[in-house]
């Protein structure tokens, strides 16, 4: 089985937010929730880089480790998913996640959180694949259809890569070797405890 990963080649990302829009549209993500976002560091200064970031589907995922109701599970492709029927919206996964991936709809009183929502790597949830119930809770399940995440498919510059970790690392490595520079794989050290050696 593949080990699914994301890799954002920040030397290519032009902050067009196509990935963000594709994700919101594909899964009909509600207002106020962004499963994917583009962060620009050193904005307006030398060394400006934009990085598209969502759940990285970590190895030994911190969110799963702290969830008080243990509602996370990892698929055979190493995609980290969770069961919204069990989630109590406590926010613990957000404290533990290094990438700010978990999102919460604001429901009810105070800052009370609803069921956590995050990137599913377009792999839906625990419901029957590609059912209406699954779609309403988690969005579409492209993985079950044999497709890769839509954000990466839509990326106008092919900065965002999604798929088998080995394959996307090879693509990135070849790019860096050809053009002679590359700022590295953002978040890989934190998420997968490894980096792409060039």
């Amino acid at each position: 089985m593949a080990r699914m990963k994301f890799l954002c080649d920040s030397d290519r990302c032009i902050e067009c937010n196509a990935c963000v829009t594709a994700c919101k549209n594909e899964h009909e993500v509600p207002w106020g929730i962004n499963r994917r976002r583009v962060v620009t560091i050193n904005d307006g200064r030398p060394g400006e880089r934009s990085i598209s970031m969502a759940c990285m589907h970590c190895t030994d995922a911190p969110c799963a480790a702290v969830c008080p109701v243990s509602c996370f599970y990892t698929t055979a492709d190493a995609i980290v998913l969770h069961d919204k029927d069990l989630c109590i919206g406590c926010g613990y996964c957000f404290y533990a996640c290094p990438f700010g991936a978990p999102q919460y709809p604001r429901v009810g009183n105070f800052g009370s959180r609803g069921k956590m929502d995050k990137c599913t790597f377009c792999a839906g949830g625990p419901q029957q694949d590609n059912t209406r119930a699954e779609y309403i809770q988690y969005g579409s399940n492209r993985i079950a259809e044999g497709k890769l995440p839509l954000c990466a498919e839509m990326c106008s510059t092919k900065a965002l890569l999604a798929g088998d970790g080995e394959i996307i690392a090879t693509i990135y490595r070849e790019r860096v070797q050809r053009r002679g520079y590359g700022s590295g794989a953002w978040g890989w050290r934190t998420a997968y405890r490894e980096t792409v050696s060039i």
């Binding site: 920040s10 560091i41 050193n42 030398p46 060394g47 880089r49 520079y181 590359g182 700022s183 590295g184 794989a185 953002w186 978040g187 890989w188 050290r189 934190t190 980096t195």
Partner: peptide
């Protein structure tokens, strides 16, 4: 490269 994801992290 002046910016390295690896180093920053």
């Amino acid at each position: 490269n002046p910016i390295s994801a690896e180093e920053l992290e």
